[in-house]
Design a protein around this nucleic acid. Sequence first.
DNA 1: ATGACTGCCTCTGGCAGA
Length: 257
Amino acid sequence: MKIASFNINGIKARLPRLLEWLEETRPAVACLQEIKTQDEGFPAEEFEKIGYHAVWHGQKGFNGVAILADGVAPVEMQRGLPGDDSDEQARYLEAEVNGVRVCNLYLPNGNPQPGPKFDYKLAWMERLRTRCRQHLAGEMPTVVLGDFNVIPGDRDVWSVRAMENDALMQPQSRDAYARLLADGWTDAIATLNPRGGVWTYWDYQAGAWQRDHGFRIDHLLLSPDCADRLVAAGVDKDHRGREKASDHAPVWVELKD
DNA sequence: ATGACTGCCTCTGGCAGA
């Protein structure tokens, strides 16, 4: 089964491109981030028309995540990241699809750093690690995927110097990501591309796409039983170059059935 | 060059993004 993640940067603005991508690549599960709509505005019927059922967790104006499944209804298991009752941001949604637990996340950006937004990011990452450890202790095959807003290493960015002060690649952000992985998760794209040079995001500004000035922040993490089933993983890079594209490209992993 | 672009909701400019 193919499981994909796509930060779409606004579901209303992106709907034609999103439907096109789903029909062309037909993932069994598609996790979306930055839907930027309230629950009432989510266009579920547009996905139903092409055979996808959805669960979603929206918020007015920004954030928001959704999980789509081909021909089967995802069974929602968790809405919002546990660990802080005061956190109102719609950044996390879990569902079970065909025996696999899918954890879809939109991790806080954290800029500017230092500051309260960076503190929120790091605290969020600790909460995520706690949640993920619980999953590793359980029985269900699990994939944790989405926009992590972390550049894991220097080989994951076009220019270390250009990004050195960014929250996405501060040592604290990288250490938190490394600690999460060390608990037992496999970064699918990194495992299959050990030399790096794979980007999932290109800024709209400064001709970043045309110059291939990108970095890798969208990740697919596999529990050990899913890692044993890893067949392939990749980036649908050509979708970033289309008319009215998101600033992220879709990423995906193929698991043996 | 403290720049650059895009989407959202609308206080049509300010915020957020990364």
